[in-house]
Design a protein around this nucleic acid. Structure first.
Lengths: 354, 354
DNA sequence: GTCGCGGATCGAATCGATTCGACAACGCTA
DNA sequence: TAGCGTTGTCGAATCGATTCGATCCGCGAC
């Protein structure tokens, strides 16, 4: 007989049933109140459970039998710290939880690092939501899909079989660019999100753009190019104020090549650019116009009145959540795409007189 | 024969074994590379798996058999949005992930709302980490513990059987108060975190304090009282800049009763108070000294040079993660307590001359 | 030549529930 | 009173793997 190291054995449903003098099938029915069970019997079973200290069926066994775990995986790109630094992600996550929470599902945080790469495959998830998917997930997605696990991607490259929750990134950026053109700007620079996994920071080159693997960032570049075909700029490593500041310093340092306007691909980046401008003694919008993207509330007065495209982050999250639920219910929802709204702030103005 | 609605059936380990001409036990060994398996056999099994499109064992079945799911539950107090608004939580979460990720565990987000209350009980978690536990979880914790699931609490009220990761909240606040006393302040007010679940915002009264159920907030109040026994103040609904601003407006509005210094229980609250002061035309630290708590980087220049107690948030998270792992390994780690470090910033000065 | 040992494999029990089909008891209608 | 639909309960199969003990085989040691 094996020695029990784990203290008193947790009672099982079978034990409860035995004590109540019923079969375990009946006990199961009582706990799930599915199927008809006489009130008296139910009471007896519940009493037996209380006496034995049984607190309901084991989730593991239940999920094996049912084929459902009640868990939805959320795949974030990076470390949690980076992911949560951007309010966008947090708000979208909240939107997902808004929808999936009440249905009794909870969210499992998965990151894309090598170590936990396996966890995406080994996690008992019923469905997966991808945040801005990068190429590295493609293969994993395939495996997950082959398992019959539904996949929803937020602003990912459209992939067969993946429900897409999209945004008018290209159009929206074009609108921003047109706003700047309308003001008279001709020397405009981009500050992009992370373009690829190679993780280099630096001046934006055509080849760099062509090799970009981040769908969202690329679409936003394309939108800007529709108005400013030869637009250059700076590629950052992600949506943070610090990255924006670094990019801003690089772009604004030399008065000779300095742009009169910057299109930042996120509000956080824009806030960073504005800081950099301030540090260099430049006035926004007097010397430099700056536009952002996202329309999130940033706790930084410098970015208070940012001209930006407001995207419905919460709704995007909710849509993703609804998509997951529909897919789990066996439906086949169609992809949705959201549109952003232009918000004129106080960070854009005509270029300075020469 | 039941009709299959789910398309091609996912192959099982048994199917793979059959195709490879081995028993399923051997196949299992091959996939877990536990036990001795001849190289040739292993290859044959893997080949069979590939042909059948088998991607490894089903996590649900595995976790039933093993009694482990590889999932650690993280219980946050509120909606995700609120929880992640405070950088402290994010950093601590990151610290946990730092430690638990490499061990192949992932984090399941659980909130305390009524709806998901059940999920804490129904989730297949191997362990649970509580963030600043409130009284409402006590009963749930009991159930979870009875299941033999280890519980780690970050700054919770010490509970039997719960591994505590604490902070010197009382001492640290006393240090801040002494700093203010040293500067000559006599009229000092508190701006507290959420004191209880009743969710009222308002002037701090002795009875309000006595009925507080938030352990951390209460300890910080006690620390301040050691220096200023009759200290009053304002109780907020949580650690946000907005709440701080509301509290600040309430405390600073009337010049007659205005304190010369405010002890805010978090940096976010402090930032809010500073904003409120600015809006009222008060100079910090000229007219008003403000101290915070946490020492997190806040993207708000107003709070840039905050005088505060810096707490090792990342280390706290890591300690919680390590605690979880040790408990899972059958060890019995002892509670840890971290200490905060005083950081003198530029938001404190002697009180204004009368 | 036999014994013993370690490597490779297999059979069968097990994890803890859910669920389908069968069945008994009961009240009701024709 | 025979037939029938309900209600309540049970037995047994099933979900898909892990793991313990047993078996078989080949090889080196004595």
């Amino acid at each position: 007989m094996p020695v029990d190291h784990t203290g008193p054995v947790r009672p099982t449903l079978a034990a409860v049933a035995r004590r109540a003098g019923v079969s375990s099938s009946t006990a199961s029915l009582a706990f799930n109140d599915s199927g008809p069970v006489a009130q008296e019997t139910r009471d007896r079973i519940l009493a037996a459970a209380r006496e034995l200290g049984y607190d309901g069926p084991d989730p593991r066994a239940r999920s094996l039998r049912r084929g459902r775990s009640g868990i939805i995986g959320v795949v974030l790109e990076e470390s949690l710290r980076d992911a949560f630094r951007d309010p966008m992600n947090v708000v979208m996550l909240d939107g997902i939880a808004d929808v999936t929470g009440p249905s009794g599902n909870s969210l499992l945080l998965l990151t894309e690092t090598a170590a936990s790469g396996s966890s995406l495959v080994e996690a008992p998830v019923d469905a997966v939501v991808l945040f801005g998917c990068s190429p590295s997930v493609d293969s994993k997605v395939e495996i997950v899909q082959r398992r019959g696990i539904p996949v929803v991607a937020i602003e990912g490259r459209p992939l067969p079989g993946v429900l897409d929750v999209g945004l008018d990134n290209r159009e929206a950026t074009r609108a921003l660019a047109e706003h700047l053109r309308g003001l008279g700007h001709t020397r405009v620079a981009l500050v992009t999100l992370e373009l690829d996994r190679d993780r280099r920071r630096g001046i934006l080159t055509p080849s760099r753009i062509d090799s970009a693997t981040s769908f969202t960032a690329l679409q936003r570049v394309r939108g800007a190019e529709e108005v400013y075909p030869d637009i250059g700029g700076y590629a950052t490593l992600g949506s943070t104020i610090d990255e924006g500041r670094i990019a801003g310093r690089a772009l604004l340092a030399d008065p000779a090549t300095r742009p009169t306007a910057v299109i930042a691909q996120s509000d956080l980046l824009a806030a960073g650019v504005i800081r950099a401008a301030g540090e260099l003694g430049l006035d926004v919008p007097g010397d430099l116009s700056v536009v952002g993207f996202d329309g999130v509330r940033i706790d930084d007065p410098a970015a208070a009145g940012l001209t930006t495209m407001v995207q419905p982050a919460l709704d995007k999250g909710r849509a993703a959540g609804r998509g997951v639920l529909e897919l789990l219910a066996g439906g086949s929802p169609s992809s949705v795409s959201f549109t952003s709204a232009f918000r004129r702030g106080s960070t854009t103005a005509p270029p300075p007189a020469v």
